[in-house]
Design a protein around this nucleic acid. Structure first.
Length: 654
DNA sequence: ACGCCCCTAAACAGGC
DNA sequence: GGCCTGTTTAGGGGCG
């Protein structure tokens, strides 16, 4: 890609207003250049990268922190549990006030560790600005001999701060784009996201590994969450999802109990599995239950250490619950924002897909046959890139990444639209808001978008400028790189026979010759594999999504992985639509429904100039209605569309 | 390998 | 001359 891009870039010398934009917009121009992507979209690093970075850094920080503490525990001499409190200074400093108080820390040995970890990060987010903090921290909390780590910590803190700043920027960008409707909490959460249960697990493990003293080991490793029972699985599933079901959380129940009971039922001890002791930090091998019990009584008797470890575990659970609650809240907000029903978490299931995009694809396509309007929510699940075709919003900002694709990167994906033309209507209807706010490249070809714009207009005719306005109005994505996409629009208008230029009083207007449009290619849209593929690739998000998904999943959705979440219901709904992709029909519908275009009466307008297309349209209108109707109605955005034309001039355009 | 699509970039021309 | 609108050409990638 790089090579190509290079050449491309060279040749492209946008005289446009925004050289950058041009680059960014497409793969080719900007192609390889990150610059391009940054330029507009989000500027800087791709969300995915950011997330990864974040996570990694957070993890690192956490590790260091734990290690530090661990070492502290050990060094002091075996059992000095009390020390822990002291050791948390750094974290403390960074922690928000409400967090753990020094006294608490003293009481509880390990909990502080965990909290410190989590909070440290949170605090960082909030206080990134204060580079000084750490200094305070040291002095403030200080009794502990963390001098040894001093420099290291500082370094890592700075790193964290940097990373957080980046993250915040990113978040801001997302918010701007409407991707992250979430409020302020987002930031905080993001940090938390960085630390998913699995991470914690790892942390513990690592720490334990490092620690020389047995105690340390036990302590660290623990968190039953870390149970390695299923290492292969990705992080989330295991730790969090496995034991903590969202449901339980929702209900306020603590997951732990459940799990225990479950295991017991199995006939084994909750702390015993796979031949080893699952006590946090302890991996002692026990041939059988008897031996285990013995071990349990000997090694994990009621003493300070065990008590402390137990507290740590409690903290872990608490943290997870808190995080879960936050994530749930966020999910609700996201769904609400995307017009989904709050109660249905399903869409997100996909997140899991990260791993297997292929499966996703299938799923999506099946679930939502092409143009079906399905919730942009899916977007929520950036995960579902594939299906995305149209409906998914997914990676809004991501598109920036799209550059990775070849030239066309993200552009609207070609065929989808055509083949699925209809999909456009429904898709747009459904995700209107999404596209308006998210900087996501719509998965449709310029031709299909233009056509849609024209058909959507009251008179089914638009001037070039009106078309431009429609684009900018409807898609945040087209608020940049104006030179590029406008050129493309003009190019399409001229090139395709389906677009007819009509001289009007106003000047020239463009209309659609539906017959010609239909001629272009046989509409067979059902979601054939290839189509799906195209969509994906075409979206340009393909890659993006994948990564983005992954990132997202890792960061925030980790908890959602729980199987329970995966519900096919959404899919089923969409299924209904399958088959109807009818291209034009959708459009019509949309219009009639007013979901997108308030134009209630398409007929009203008189085709003054030309009257070619009518026939097809009628058909279209009539049939799909049933299916779409339901969907469309649900969509909330009827009004905006309306105003668009006149309301929005070119303001948005540069 | 070919042809078709789609996309982007650009050069040009005409009109205001 | 600058901008907008249209037209056309060129080249690249994806896909069947």
């Amino acid at each position: 890609m790089m090579v190509e891009s290079a050449s491309e870039t060279i040749r492209t010398t946008p005289s446009n207003q925004n050289g950058v934009s041009s680059l960014s917009s497409q793969s080719d121009g900007g192609g390889g250049r990150e610059g391009g992507s940054n330029g507009d979209t989000n500027g800087e690093i791709s969300p995915v990268d950011l997330l990864h970075l974040q996570q990694q850094q957070a993890l690192q920080a956490a590790r260091q922190f734990l290690l530090q503490q661990a070492s502290g525990l050990n060094s002091p001499g075996g059992n000095e549990v009390k020390q822990s409190p002291v050791q948390v200074p750094v974290s403390m400093a960074m922690m928000s006030p409400q967090m753990i108080t020094p006294q608490q820390m003293q009481q509880i040995l390990s909990p502080p560790q965990l909290q410190a970890l989590l909070q440290q990060q949170q605090a960082l987010m909030l206080q990134q600005v204060n580079t000084h903090t750490h200094t305070h921290i040291h002095t403030k909390v200080g009794p502990r001999p963390r001098l040894q780590l001093g420099s290291k910590q500082l370094a890592f803190q700075q790193q964290l701060i940097q990373m957080q700043q980046l993250q915040q920027q990113h978040i801001l960008n997302l918010q701007r784009q409407g991707l992250v409707p979430m409020q302020p909490t987002a930031t905080m959460q993001s940090l938390q996201q960085a630390m998913c249960p699995s991470d914690l697990q790892q942390l513990w493990k690592e720490v334990s590994g490092v620690q020389s003293s047995e105690e340390a080991l036990k302590q660290a490793e623990g968190l039953d969450l870390s149970t390695n029972s299923s290492n292969s699985t990705s992080a989330f599933p295991k730790a969090a999802s496995a034991h903590i079901s969202l449901h339980s959380l929702a209900n306020g129940q603590s997951h732990t109990p459940k799990r225990d009971s479950h295991e017991e039922h199995a006939g084994s001890h909750p702390l015993y599995g796979h031949g080893e002791c699952k006590w946090p930090g302890c991996e002692a091998l026990c041939e059988d239950m008897g031996q285990f019990i013995k071990h349990l009584n000997n090694e994990h008797a009621l003493d300070d250490r065990s008590t402390a470890q137990c507290r740590v575990q409690m903290q872990v659970v608490q943290q997870l619950e808190i995080q879960l609650a936050k994530e749930s809240e966020r999910l609700q907000a996201m769904m609400a924002h995307l017009h989904m029903r709050p109660s249905e978490p399903k869409p997100f299931n996909q997140p899991l897909n990260l791993a297997s995009s292929g499966s996703l694809l299938k799923r999506d396509s099946d679930a939502y046959p092409e143009g079906l309007p399905h919730p942009p929510t899916s977007a929520a699940a950036p995960i579902t890139p594939l299906r995305q075709g149209p409906s998914v919003i997914s990676s809004s900002s991501l598109h920036s990444h799209s550059h990775s694709h070849t030239h066309g990167v993200g552009p609207i994906r070609r065929r989808n639209s055509d083949k699925y033309c209809t999909p456009i209507a429904s898709e747009l209807a459904q995700n209107c808001e999404f596209y308006k706010n998210a900087d996501v490249r719509p998965p449709f070809t310029y031709a299909s978008l233009i056509r849609h714009a024209i058909l959507e207009s009251p008179d089914r005719q638009l001037t070039l400028n009106e078309i431009y306005n429609w684009f900018t109005r409807k898609f945040a994505y087209f608020r940049r790189n104006t030179a590029t996409w406008k050129n493309a629009v003009r190019h399409n208008l001229s090139l395709h026979k389906c677009f007819v230029r009509v001289e009007n009083v106003k000047g020239a207007v463009w209309t659609v010759d539906e017959v010609e449009y239909q001629k272009r290619r046989p509409p067979k849209m059902t979601g054939s594999p290839t189509l799906v593929k195209n969509m994906i690739s075409g979206l340009g998000f393909g890659s993006l999504n994948a990564s983005y998904q992954a990132a997202l999943a890792e960061s925030s959705l980790s908890l959602l992985n729980s199987p329970s979440l995966l519900t096919p219901s959404a899919a089923s709904l969409n299924m209904l639509h399958v088959g109807h992709d009818d291209v034009s029909s959708t459009v019509e519908q949309v219009n009639s429904n007013g979901s997108c275009s308030p134009t209630l009466s398409p007929q009203q307008y008189s085709h003054q100039v030309h009257v070619k297309e009518e026939p097809t349209e009628l058909e279209e209108d009539s049939r799909p209605v049933s299916l779409l109707a339901g969907v469309t109605h649900s969509l909330p955005l009827p009004s905006d569309e309306r105003d668009l034309e006149e309301d929005l001039p070119t303001e948005e355009l540069e």
